[in-house]
Computed example of a mutant assay.
Amino acid sequence: MEFRWLKQNNAAEAIVVFGGWAVGPEVFWHLDGPQDILFAGDYTDLNAELPDLSGYSRVSVLAWSFGVAAYAHWQQERPDPFQRKAAVNGSLQPVNRGAGIPPAVFRRTMETLSLESYQGFLTRVFGAPQEAEALDVPARRAELLAVEQRGDAPQMRFDKVWISSGDKIFPPANLARAWAGQNVTQIDAPHAPFGRFSHWEELFQ
């Protein structure tokens, strides 16, 4: 795992984004707001440490897809610097028949991973065909294996949970079970719903 700044202008607030698998920060570029943005990706290991965020008056975390479980695993046994937490189309049980991606589907994705299957994955993520993307197949397969072996994340409450009705990666019914009793909002969108938003702040409301 690594952290890298997408935007750093000495703002009053920082948002730490735990992104999804094999999808870079480009899905967030259009989101506007005064906040500084720190992006986390590649969950093959979770050894990275946050930079010093003590100068910010507020620090929030936004976790998407496999970033939800990765964040919860990472946060365990570390001081929690976040005043607000939002989860988008992910689960603390990422590989789970009733609360995440069914294990057979996950295993098939991992075992058949190729440039061609990755393009199909991107189509499901965004709800429409995407331009061809390069992929380091062995590295991304290793990341999936790490997610599977890491298993369920510790239980954690989020201030806001988003579930897309058109999610073709995490079954929406499974996410509804996973987040029962928390502050859930359903949205008519694909697995990557960020095109429905224009400002970072909307994702925490």
Rank of each mutant, 00 (worst) to 15 (best):
E13C: 13
R150C: 09
H191W: 11
L175N: 00
I187C: 01
I163G: 07
D32S: 08
W179Q: 00
A173D: 14
I101S: 02
L144C: 10
A11Y: 10
R196Q: 15
S65N: 04
S198V: 11
H30C: 03
R58T: 00
A72M: 05
A128Y: 10
L62Q: 00
N96C: 14
K85T: 09
A99F: 15
D52M: 02
S117I: 05
A139K: 15
Q93K: 13
P172M: 00
A134N: 11
A128D: 04
G181E: 07
N174I: 06
I101M: 10
G166K: 13
W179Y: 04
F28C: 01
N89W: 05
L115S: 13
E133D: 04
R157C: 12
L50F: 04
D188W: 12
V61M: 02
V125C: 14
A86G: 10
K7E: 07
V137M: 09
G19I: 01
H73P: 08
D152L: 13
P129N: 07
R107P: 01
V27C: 14
I101V: 15
Q76L: 15
P138S: 09
R108C: 07
I101K: 04
A176R: 15
R97H: 09
D42K: 05
A189P: 06
E111H: 14
D42T: 04
P190W: 13
P25M: 05
A146V: 04
V161R: 12
L50G: 00
G67F: 02
Y71Q: 04
I187P: 02
K85D: 06
H199V: 07
F121W: 12
P81T: 07
T109V: 09
V68T: 01
R177V: 13
I169Q: 02
G98Q: 13
L6T: 03
L122Y: 08
N47F: 05
E148W: 15
K160C: 11
F66V: 15
W74H: 03
V125Q: 09
G41L: 00
I169A: 02
M1G: 13
H199F: 11
S91L: 13
W74C: 01
V95M: 03
P79H: 05
Y56C: 02
L203P: 03
F28I: 03
F204W: 14
F66Q: 05
E111Y: 08
A192Q: 00
T123N: 08
L50R: 02
G90Q: 04
D36A: 03
V137I: 12
E13F: 09
D52C: 01
Y56Q: 04
P129S: 06
S91D: 10
D152S: 15
N9M: 12
P81R: 05
P94W: 14
E111S: 14
E116T: 13
T112D: 00
D45V: 11
E2A: 11
E77Y: 11
Q149F: 07
P154Y: 08
N9E: 12
L122P: 06
V68I: 02
Q205F: 11
V23K: 03
F3R: 04
E13R: 15
A176I: 12
F3H: 05
A192S: 10
F3L: 06
L113S: 11
